[in-house]
């Protein structure tokens, strides 16, 4: 564990900007063989990235924690199928998107209500220097589900509309419409 060899280039994660880095690291191989300590190393390395993605897709901190855990449990179950033809980080990123979106779709069917509920304190208080960034995060979290997911995937994560359409089970044009709405709502929210 002294040399986890997990140093992917920072852009390895994002779709449009993605540069797949094919290699199976030592930690990945050991985790796939059932080594939990190695898997914990992977968790420590990637938790922040996965959590940020879940948080923005779900718009809710409590949910984001649950999803992050689901993602790593799912990763553990599927590690054997990870072939190393993409960077582990990209694979995990894709898995996270799937976990969150699948559950959000199921939940929408179940709950009929699609607006995000965030619990008390989960929307961060804007503060001084980082106020602008947090305002943007808060505004993103407050977007309607579909608009938020498309915005996060397209404008933050760099996915294309065709791919987003597939992930969300919507037409490409619908994805564009959601993006347009998201950008408009964000502009309005931030201009206040």
């Amino acid at each position: 564990m002294s040399n986890p060899a997990l140093s992917f280039p920072p852009h390895a994660f994002s779709g449009r900007r993605a540069v797949p880095v094919p290699r199976v690291t030592d930690a990945v191989a050991r985790a796939a063989a059932g080594d939990r300590a190695a898997f914990e190393t992977l968790y420590r390395e990637h938790a922040g990235r996965v959590y940020a993605l879940c948080l923005r897709l779900a718009g809710d901190t409590t949910r984001a924690e649950e999803y992050t855990q689901d993602v790593f449990v799912r990763a553990w179950q599927r590690l054997a199928s990870f072939r190393g033809d993409a960077a582990f980080s990209s694979w995990l990123h894709r898995l996270a998107v799937n976990v969150v979106l699948q559950d959000r779709r199921a939940e929408r069917r179940r709950l009929r209500r699609v607006e995000p509920t965030d619990d008390l304190g989960s929307a961060p208080a804007p503060r001084d220097r980082i106020a602008a960034r947090l305002d943007l995060e808060t505004a993103i979290a407050a977007l309607p589900d579909a608009a938020r997911q498309v915005f996060v995937l397209y404008d933050i994560e760099g996915y294309g509309h065709a791919e987003i359409g597939r992930l969300l089970g919507i037409a490409e044009g619908t994805s564009k419409a959601h993006l347009h709405r998201a950008r408009r709502l964000l502009r309005e929210a931030l201009e206040r």
């Binding site: 914990e40 938790a47 990235r49 923005r56 943007l136 993103i140 404008d155």
Partner: peptide
């Protein structure tokens, strides 16, 4: 531009391990 500049990694508020 702001959206692209958002941090890619946010530490979870508690240890989820």
């Amino acid at each position: 531009a702001d959206a692209r500049a958002l941090p890619r990694s946010i530490a979870p508020p508690r240890d989820l391990w």
